[in-house]
Design a protein around this nucleic acid. Structure first.
Lengths: 122, 122
DNA sequence: TGTTGATATGCAGGCAATTCGATGCCATCG
DNA sequence: CGATGGCATCGAATTGCCTGCATATCAACA
């Protein structure tokens, strides 16, 4: 699957700091940030991340958000296409979990190089 | 001035990781992210940051962006209200510069606590 | 004071996003 | 097989956002 984050975090993408970023890079990064820039989706990420096993299905997320099931499904789709969530279908349920270090990648693109410790993440 | 970031980064705000974030926190954080989630504004931040003295006026930013002066002014306003830029008027010109560590603050809200020194999370 | 030039604001057109109800799809169970 | 239940998709309504043109504001200067 070609997610937005996969394109936004290509090795040669320039982070916000440093040289002025190109139009294409700006659009890719903006695309991922736009997926994050919604209260419902931020809460979804937070709920999934703090759920037991770090995963949750749609039916677990509808009530705490106070949104309809189609709306929740829609938001999960956007987060998945942005490369922030991954979906696994087990039986009747669709389980969503965070893509490891996906959000950290975005944070790295925003912050200046400072002492970025040689790869070794996680 | 009460900026969006000032509210989003109040000490007791919960980052994305950890406990599920509250609706109000999600809305504040989403507000700041929404200011970031635009190609033109990302390029503005990048241009200003990489300009000599780390500052730029509107007339310097219009051409490289390829947008009209009112539109650039509009985006700068949004970034300023979000707490990402600060404006200083000298004579006829309005100079914009990054608010120190404002973007880093956002990045910290997104990433897990990892080894956030001192501070004693929660 | 009147003019010039750099920014900001108002207004409006057009496109995108959020949300919901209705419905379709598909695995599971009786 | 028919019914049930979880999830995705469709269509539509509302709202919000990006952009430019026209115009207002304000400082500098003759």
């Amino acid at each position: 699957m070609r997610t937005a984050l996969a394109e936004a975090s290509m090795p040669q993408i320039s982070p916000l700091a440093g040289e002025p970023i190109e139009r294409a890079d700006a659009e890719r990064l903006a695309g991922v940030l736009k997926a994050l820039a919604d209260p419902a989706r931020l809460r979804l990420l937070s709920l999934i991340q703090s759920a037991p096993e770090g995963e949750a299905c749609v039916c677990d997320l509808t009530a705490p958000l106070g949104l309809s099931q189609p709306t929740v499904s829609h938001h999960l789709r956007i987060l998945t296409e942005a490369g922030l969530l991954e979906r696994e279908k087990r039986g009747v349920w669709a389980y969503y979990r965070l893509v490891p270090s996906a959000i950290a990648t975005i944070a790295d693109l925003l912050t200046p190089p400072r002492k970025r410790a040689t790869k070794k993440s996680r």
